[in-house]
Each structure stands twice: as C-alpha cells, then as structure tokens.
Nucleic acid binder design. Structure first.
Lengths: 336, 336
DNA sequence: TTGAAAGCGCTAACAG
DNA sequence: CTGTTAGCGCTTTCAA
C-alpha cells in the first residue's frame, strides 16, 4: 500500500507538506503543491480514511438510519443523499432495520456510535430519548427526513397541505362519498406520517361538511397487495360504495386500481382514485397523485448536514418541501 | 467521548486487557472479563472504528458498488447484504453511481480505495481491468451479484435456465407466436444480463423450431413505462400479433400488462405474459413469473465475503441461485 | 513556506 | 492471565 511517506519521499518534502498540499490547504508554494500532486497521482496514493479520521476526528462519512431499504420512498431518498454526499467527497453508511425493530439497539450501539460517521440522517423513524441523547453525545448533527419527529428538525412535504389538496381536488370534481385507504405503522416502528395523513383527511372532510363513514376507512399498510385485498373487501361488503378513494400512498393506490379492475369497477367512471407520491409507476398506471420528490428531499437534508459540518449555522427549521397535484386518468367527476 | 483508557482505569487493568475482554479473545479470566464488560457498559464505551481499523487493518465495513439504488432488484439485494452484515457486526457502505457512469472514476478512487472497507460487493456491473487491479492491490475480497462479469466470480440465478423455463412454459401451453420484451444497458454501464436473456430466448425458440420475428422483439429498458409504450406500439403496428410475450423482467411485464389493458387486449385470453423476478407487485398484479430472491443472493454473497475475511478458503465458483416458476393469472393457452 | 514531533484510540507482539 | 511497548497512517501544533 502506498502511504503518505512514500509521496513525501518521492517529493523530498515532509509528510506534513504532502498532507497540506493534497488537501488544498494554504501555505504551500505552487511549485511544491504541483510536485506533490503529481507524485501522489503517479504512485496511486489514496489516503487512509481510518488514519485521517483518527487524526482529524472527521470521518468524511455520513450515516443514514432507515426502517427498510426496499421501499420506493426510502430508496429514492437514499439515492438523493448518496448523490449529494458523493459530490462532497463523503461516503454513505447505511443502517437498515430491515423491516423490523429487532436489531435496533444493536444498530445503534455497535454501529452508529462507533465514531464512524460525522452526521446522521434518520428516515421516517421516531428515535427514543435515549437514542437522541447518545447522538447528542456524539455531537453529530442529525436530521430527520420524511416525517416529523418530536424534538428533531425534519425535512418533508407539508403532509397536511398535501392531503388537503388531494381531497379537495376530489371534492372539486364533485365527489362527496370519499373513502380513505390508510397506511400504517408496520416495521415495528412508530411512524407518524400515517397518523398525520389520517387526521388531515378527516379535517378536510369535516371542513367541507362531508360524511366520513367507518366502512369506507380501510387499512392498506402502505403496500400494494394489502391495499388491493382491503379495497376488494371494502367494495364488496359495503352498503353503499364510495365514488372516490383517497390513498395515503401511491403503492396503495395501485392496489386500489387493481382492486377496481378485478371487480369490474371502472376507473374513473365509477370510481376515482388519487394517491400521494408520484411513484415511478404512477405515470404508466395513469394515477392522479400528489407529487413529492424524495431524492431532492434526501439531497437537501444531506446538504444541510454537510453545511453544518463546514461550520455553518444549523438550519433549525427547514422549510417544507414542495408537492404538486398531478392530474392523470384515475380521477373524474362522480357518476351522476 | 469515553475511550478505552477510561474503561481500563475504571477496571484497574491495562487497555490491552480491556481490548481483549471486549472482543471476546481468549486469555482473560472470567472475573476480569465480567468487570470490564460491566464497566464498558456503564460508561457507555464504544470503540472507535477509525482507531481499531488503523491498528488492526480491518475496518469492519463492507462496500457495495451499484449502478442505482432505486430499482427493485438492487435495493432488494442491498437489504439482504445489510441483514447479513449487521448480524456479523459489519457496516455497509454504499457506492451508487446514481444511474450514470459519470462519477465512476471518482467513486473508485476517492471512496472505494480509501481503505475504508474490507471487502467489496459489486452489483451487476462490469468492472474494468484497471479497477480490478486496484481492487487486487487492496487485497479486498470481491464478488459480483446479479450478473456474470468477466474474471470475477458471481452470485446469480442461472439466467439461461430461467429464461428457458419461462419460454418453455409458454410453449407447453401451446404458444408458438412469442414476443420478447427485452431489457437494456442503460445506466451508461455495460450490463451483461440483458444479452444473456436475449440469447437464451433465441436459443429456446430455435430449439423448438419456433419463428422469431423481428417485429416481435421490443425494447423496454427494464422499465415499466418504457415497456408499456413499446408494447403498445408493437401490438398496434404489427402485421400479426403474438399470443404471448416473454418479458426479461417483471417491471417490463407490468408495462406489457398495462399496454394490453389500454388496448383492450385481454390477458391471458388473447395474450399471455410472463416475467422474471417475482417483484413485490407480481402477486397482486397476477403475473406469472420466474421467481428469484435478490435478498438471499445478497446475503449469500456477503456471507461468502465474510467467511473469507475470517480466513476461510474462498469459494471460487458459487453455485447458481435457485429460481422457480410461479404460475399466476397472466398465462393460459393461446386462443384457438 | 516548510519540517519535526506529538499524538488520535486502538491492537498486537512480546514479556512477565 | 496480564501489562508494556510499539506502532497503524495521518493531522496538527509549534518552531524554524
């Protein structure tokens, strides 16, 4: 392995100078810097992150803690985070709970706290007071993406407004019988988004004086399959069918779409369906939805963390991220 | 920050003993070990990975290099890798090219070679000779998942056999007019899987003496939307329609399904559709497919790497991973 | 502008 | 079974 001393020897300067030259620090003459750069290049020198981390206290790596990788929103955020980090020369360390909370304690202690990361981005998860304290001790800047968490700043869309816009769009089309396909708190984790969306739905319906029926409230667990099953059951058993379904996520909306198809219910003729996300499949499935951009959210949040590591003042209360209504073929006025 | 000396002081032993005790090494009396463990626990001591990495030469982290995170197969593999690593106390560092090859050189030099990882798992990507050499220099065990790569062992299904099984299933149902919805080499990366599947398709058709028509070969780029568009175009313009479509991935098969629906072509009445993957949505979409388990593949590959790091003999040629035909509603005999 | 030297926190011989 | 002693490769004062 080529180490800094090799470069120093090749250039006939000290390792201190090599270090300074390579990191672009001031106080190195142009000539020396050029020679060092060249030698490093030729020798194929790459600094050891362990050594520089140990010496400087900065690891040049950021951690992302998430409940599950294999879900559209999470992996899209991850992609954005990675993009941002990569351009800043940071590495991305992923801590997934793999859909359960089982090894959570271990993840926290054995991994996150190992002084391996300079900052932590937490996705859609409540963190406990104890965990929060551990993080404070590490003095790593922390941020949450995709769901508000008590006591920690977060980056996400304004869920309340997004839901409101979706439901009011249905209302503006003339719908009054609107069902809600709800998400849930799987993953063995507390997960605030479903609750916020539920409340926003109820609030909007109430605001417009519309009835909310118990039998029109179905649980789809944020999943395609579960949503399909639940909607089939609802549509088959209900005393009166709704004319529209507001779905708390696109994946569930896909389930609703398939449920309608399998029952021979036409969309949007007999039933309008709207989602939230603008999942990659929403366009080809013709789903009307509220678009959000998880990649941008991830990149933005990572950017805030990076800025802090550069010594900037922390942004205490990041602005809500944008969302937009995307009209596609799954919504129309109710049958008269 | 609590460091090893604090634990040593609290226990009145040397740091060497603390280190040994904490890592479960032999040569520590039960009593001492217990006291050390207790003190470490109480003080909230967590070893610094940079320091232990520097001293021992092992980082306890594994890297995964992939073209893109946000794709079913890739994120599912990642999930499996993470699970395996977590249980071995290893961390997962993700290097995504974000769908392009643009920053590839940088990823390699600034990140992978920084002596931050003990082993590297490469997903579905060709690595260049130079890159391969860099890795050899690092002496990090390497493995490829999800596609064979020249000169590097890989973990994946037997693509040839899987495709053969899919196509022969269609043939066994009586189909003779079979289209192929092909994947492609996006991401600016060489990606061998689509070619293997193409060849296997042609081979199987030839073996059964069936015609392959140019106009039935459509390119879906492994994506839902592109596939839908391409299939609509094919079905509308073709002189004679195929009675079945073999799709090189489930996501493309979904596109084919939607294409058929939007043209009013019934599935499986007029058109049978089969995919490969058993994507999470395949079940609720009723798609017949060849199942593979990316999570298991990732976990298995990571396990091989871990075993090597433990000093085991490398498995030079990992066995192909299992695949199974899953019959669902999208396939039936052709219309007579 | 440069170099010497002292660590960063841990592990790994080698003694005892 | 335990302690002492060198480092691991880099950064960072402090001098020159």
């Amino acid at each position: 392995m080529v180490i800094i001393e090799d470069v120093a020897a090749a250039t006939r300067v000290s390792t201190a100078t090599v270090s300074r030259a390579l990191r672009g620090l001031p106080g190195v003459s142009d000539g020396t810097r050029a020679r060092v750069l060249l030698a490093a290049q030729q020798l194929g020198y790459v600094p050891s992150s362990a050594a520089s981390g140990l010496a400087s206290g900065r690891t040049m790596a950021m951690g992302v803690l998430l409940p599950l990788i294999e879900r559209w929103y999470f992996s899209a955020v991850l992609e954005g985070v990675d993009r941002q980090l990569r351009s800043a020369g940071y590495d991305l360390i992923v801590f997934s709970l793999g859909g359960t909370g089982i090894n959570r304690e271990r993840v926290f202690h054995r991994s996150i706290l190992r002084k391996r990361i300079d900052a932590l981005l937490v996705m859609c998860m409540e963190i406990t007071t104890e965990e929060h304290l551990s993080l404070r001790e590490l003095e790593s800047p922390t941020i949450v993406v995709g769901g508000s968490v008590q006591g920690v700043r977060h980056v996400s869309i304004d869920d309340d407004a997004a839901v409101c816009e979706a439901v009011e769009y249905l209302i503006s089309l003339g719908h009054t019988k609107i069902a809600h396909l709800r998400g849930g708190g799987s993953y063995g984790l507390y997960f605030e988004v479903p609750r916020i969306r539920e409340e926003a739905f109820l609030k909007t319906m109430a605001k417009h004086g519309l009835p909310v029926r118990e039998e029109w409230s179905v649980f789809g667990d944020f999943r395609f399959k579960e949503a399909k099953t639940a909607v089939i059951e609802m549509l088959s058993q209900v005393t009166e069918r709704p004319t529209a379904i507001f779905c708390s996520s696109d994946e569930m909306a896909f389930g609703a779409l398939m449920a309608a198809a399998s029952l021979g219910v036409t969309v949007p003729g007999e039933l309008s369906i709207i989602g939230i996300d603008d999942h990659e499949f929403a366009d080809p499935m013709g789903l009307t939805t509220i678009r959000q951009d998880p990649g941008e959210q991830g990149a933005y949040a990572a950017g805030l963390l990076l800025a802090e590591l550069e010594g900037m003042q922390p942004v205490v209360c990041p602005p809500p991220q944008p969302h937009t209504l995307i009209r596609r073929g799954s919504t129309a006025p109710p049958p008269r």
